[in-house]
Computed example of a mutant assay.
Amino acid sequence: MTGYLTTHVLDTARGCPAEGMQIDLFLIEGETRTHLKTLKTNDDGRTDEQILPASDFQIGEYELVFHAGDYLDATGTPPESPRFLNIIPIRFGMSEAAHYHVPLLLSPFSYSTYRGS
């Protein structure tokens, strides 16, 4: 099996996919954090392509950075300064060549994630 990485974002406060959210992917090697890709979610809250396709997959530590504050602003969520949730980093490891799915469940005051399928 070849490994790859996907995600999706659900806006649990509005009960819908989080369309238009920017997501950055970083490779973490010790103290070095290397930016690999920037994508936006589509109308289904997913990216149009795999975040890390099989051709680029390698075992290691990664970080997904979800730009939740910009998304919340764009959806008309009442502003606060500063936002309780703005930038949400999720750091995780991929230890085998498999499909890793790292979703984000978001509301203005909480979030959760898990290893999905």
Rank of each mutant, 00 (worst) to 15 (best):
M1V: 10
M1D: 11
G3S: 05
Y4I: 05
Y4E: 03
Y4G: 01
Y4Q: 02
T6C: 09
H8S: 13
H8G: 09
V9T: 08
V9S: 01
L10A: 13
D11W: 07
D11A: 11
D11H: 09
T12H: 14
A13W: 14
A13M: 14
R14I: 03
R14H: 07
G15L: 07
G15D: 07
C16T: 06
P17G: 09
P17Y: 09
A18N: 01
A18L: 05
E19G: 04
M21D: 02
M21Y: 04
M21F: 10
Q22C: 13
D24I: 00
D24V: 02
D24Y: 04
L25D: 03
F26R: 08
F26N: 05
L27K: 15
L27Q: 10
L27N: 08
I28A: 00
E29G: 08
E29W: 01
E29L: 10
E29S: 15
G30M: 07
E31H: 12
E31W: 07
T32G: 00
R33A: 01
R33N: 06
T34H: 06
T34N: 15
H35P: 02
L36I: 11
K37F: 04
T38E: 11
T41L: 09
N42D: 14
N42I: 04
D44L: 13
D44I: 05
D44W: 09
G45N: 01
G45V: 03
G45F: 11
R46P: 13
T47G: 14
T47H: 07
T47R: 04
D48T: 00
E49P: 01
I51Q: 01
P53G: 08
P53N: 03
P53A: 12
A54M: 09
F57V: 03
Q58Y: 13
I59F: 05
I59Y: 02
I59Q: 04
G60D: 06
E61S: 05
E63R: 09
L64K: 06
V65L: 11
V65T: 00
V65S: 04
F66D: 00
H67T: 00
A68F: 04
A68W: 04
A68K: 01
A68I: 00
A68T: 02
D70Q: 15
D70F: 12
D70S: 11
Y71G: 02
L72H: 09
D73R: 13
A74E: 10
A74W: 08
T75D: 12
T75L: 12
P78D: 03
P78K: 10
P79W: 10
E80V: 05
S81N: 09
S81A: 10
P82N: 11
P82S: 06
L85E: 06
N86H: 03
N86W: 06
I88P: 05
P89N: 12
P89G: 03
I90Y: 09
I90A: 09
I90V: 08
R91M: 11
R91S: 15
F92A: 01
G93K: 13
G93L: 03
M94H: 04
S95C: 10
S95E: 13
E96D: 08
E96M: 10
A97T: 08
A98R: 14
Y100K: 02
H101M: 09
V102K: 05
P103W: 04
P103D: 05
L104T: 00
S107P: 03
P108D: 07
P108L: 03
P108R: 02
Y111P: 01
Y111F: 13
Y111H: 06
Y111S: 04
S112H: 11
S112T: 10
Y114G: 15
R115D: 07
R115Q: 15
G116D: 14
S117I: 12
